[in-house]
């Protein structure tokens, strides 16, 4: 089993880099994953990651990209709730990559 090392802790990840145990997550995990993916994390990234974690907490699922986009538009405004903006933040896909950083499973329906 592959692991990611964050602050001296070895955390299990699957073959695509998603955390195996959701409870293993803490903010530095996202930072460490971003370094591996060469994404420079800023407040805008954290807005999305925090949103995803809250969504998962409430519904126990990682939202599909379409749902994420619509919900972000409603919560953070239209200028952020569009796929161009979200793909700029997370070039490998707001669903796949942001969920990974947030410690969530890959969104259902994401291929």
């Amino acid at each position: 089993m592959a692991t990611i090392s964050v602050e001296g802790k070895d955390l299990e990840v699957d073959e695509e880099g998603y955390l195996v145990n959701l409870d293993d997550w803490f903010p530095e995990v996202a930072t460490a994953m971003a370094v591996i993916d060469e994404v420079e994390m800023g407040d805008d990234h954290w807005d999305i990651i925090n949103f995803l974690r809250e969504y998962y907490e409430e519904y126990q699922i990682a939202p599909a990209v379409r749902v994420l986009t619509k919900a972000v538009a409603k919560k953070l405004g239209k200028e952020k709730g569009n796929s161009k903006y979200l793909y700029q933040l997370f070039p490998y896909g707001p669903g796949k990559q942001a969920c990974k950083f947030a410690g969530l499973p890959k969104p259902t329906g994401c291929v």
């Binding site: 409430e58 519904y59 126990q60 699922i61 939202p63 599909a64 749902v67 619509k70 919900a71």
Partner: peptide, 14 residues
């Protein structure tokens, strides 16, 4: 068991 009932509440978002 994993409680998946909350996910039905997300159907409206979908």
């Amino acid at each position: 068991m994993k409680n998946f009932s909350a996910a039905y509440k997300a159907l409206g978002d979908y």
